[in-house]
Amino acid sequence: MHAFKLIPAAALLCALAACGSDDDAAETEAPAAPKTPAVVISKADADALRAEIYPLWNPPAEPPCHAQLKIRIDLAEDGSVVRADAKPELAFDDPCRGAQDAAIRAIWAASPLDVPRHREWNSLTLIFDRDALM
């Protein structure tokens, strides 16, 4: 049983602003941002990331957390972590907040990650599941 799963990464979407005139009668709509297909990370890449990050995750024993924690990671070309954000970020009094913070620390500690140089993805969401440890 895997400790966490990778969710297919989606490319960043650009929001295009509408160009208009000062004339109140003339309205223009912003063109829709092109949809990019979700890029799926290979099983080998997912397993390699798990092997790098998961051993560094040390969630607190108390209070126990039985939730799956989602952490969004953005990577630089060399595999360095640029950003690691909880999705959603838990409240400070949530019993799983300590486990969530530990997951983010583990990701930063593993940086730079050993990722393929020529990959189609630069961001991904990891799911940390403490119950999968047992």
Score class of each variant (00 low, 15 high):
Pro37Lys: 04
Asn58Ile: 13
Pro63Thr: 08
Ala11Lys: 03
Pro31Met: 09
Cys65Gln: 07
Leu16Val: 15
Ile41Arg: 00
Leu56Thr: 07
Ala18Thr: 12
Ala25Cys: 10
Ala9Asp: 13
Ala15Phe: 06
Pro55Gly: 08
Val40Asn: 04
Leu12Glu: 14
Glu52Gly: 10
Leu16Lys: 01
Ala61Thr: 15
Asp24Arg: 00
Leu13Asp: 15
Leu49His: 02
Val39Tyr: 00
Trp57Gln: 02
Leu6Gln: 05
Cys65Phe: 09
Ile41Lys: 00
Ala38His: 02
Gly20Val: 02
Pro8Trp: 01
Leu13Ser: 14
Ala44Trp: 12
Lys35Thr: 13
Pro31Val: 11
Leu13Ile: 06
Ala51Ile: 08
Cys14Arg: 06
Ala48Ser: 11
Ala9Gly: 15
Ala61Gln: 12
Val40Arg: 02
Ala18Ser: 12
Gly20Phe: 00
Pro37Asn: 08
Ala32Gly: 06
Pro63Phe: 08
Leu16Ile: 15
Leu6Lys: 01
Ala46His: 07
Ala17Pro: 00
Ala30Glu: 14
Asp24Thr: 00
Pro55Asp: 09
Val39Gln: 10
Leu12His: 00
Asp47Pro: 03
Asp45Met: 01
Ala33Leu: 07
Trp57Gly: 11
Asp23Met: 07
Ala18Leu: 06
Ala44Asp: 15
Cys65Trp: 13
Ile41Cys: 04
Pro8Val: 13
Leu56Cys: 07
